[in-house]
């Protein structure tokens, strides 16, 4: 069988190389850590205490991390993921929800399209911060493997966060109607 001509060889090598690179990239992406949900925090009218830049960065990061953990825990029905960024009442409620899902073989999958967060209260001693969150979420609910509902909507949340030793924790996360804020 005669060898392919030079031009054909170049084309062949290019195609094989491109396919290899694509394969490697998709493997890497499949195993790569999931990226955090996008959180944009505004604190223009925050009172009575103004927010420090570093605090704002940490709150944004920790809130995003909390949502990532929330999505994972409701999809995989795991309560251990609630330990890192949740505390108090919201942790208790989410754990109860996970147990209820598990008992009925239900799962909830969140696709997080980002959060537009406004900081509305920061206590004078820095111990509590209240946020209004407008989240873009796609929520799919599964009964076993059967998809029973999909909703894509903006959902509003009233959030209370409190500082810990090295991070901020979500203490209350209450979904509210469109007219709440």
């Amino acid at each position: 069988m005669p060898l392919p001509g030079p031009r054909l060889r170049v084309v062949l090598f290019t195609v094989v190389g491109a396919v290899s690179v694509a394969a490697v990239l998709s493997i890497v992406l499949a195993f790569a850590a999931p990226t955090l949900p996008r959180v944009s925090l505004s604190a223009d009218s925050l009172a009575p205490r103004p927010i420090e830049q570093r605090t704002g960065e940490v709150v944004s990061h920790d809130y995003a991390q909390a949502w990532q953990d929330l999505a994972l825990c409701l999809e995989e029905n795991r309560t251990d993921l609630l330990d890192d960024y949740f505390t108090g009442e919201v942790k208790r409620r989410l754990a109860q929800r996970v147990r209820a899902q598990k008992a009925s073989n239900l799962r909830t999958r969140y696709s997080d399209g980002g959060h537009k967060v406004k900081a509305v209260f920061y206590s004078a001693d820095g111990g509590e911060m209240q946020l209004e969150d407008e989240a873009q979420l796609e929520v799919r609910v599964f009964d076993g493997d059967k998809l029973i509902s999909t909703s894509t909507a903006k959902q509003k949340y009233l959030v209370l966060m409190t500082p810990g030793s090295d991070r901020w924790y979500v203490r209350f996360l209450q979904s509210v109607g469109d007219n709440a804020f």
């Binding site: 989410l94 929800r97 209820a100 008992a103 909830t108 009964d143």
Partner: peptide, 13 residues
């Protein structure tokens, strides 16, 4: 039919 109720603490079937 089957009723599903999902809330902050609930997942009822």
């Amino acid at each position: 039919g089957t009723l599903y109720l999902f809330g902050p603490t609930q997942a009822i079937k």
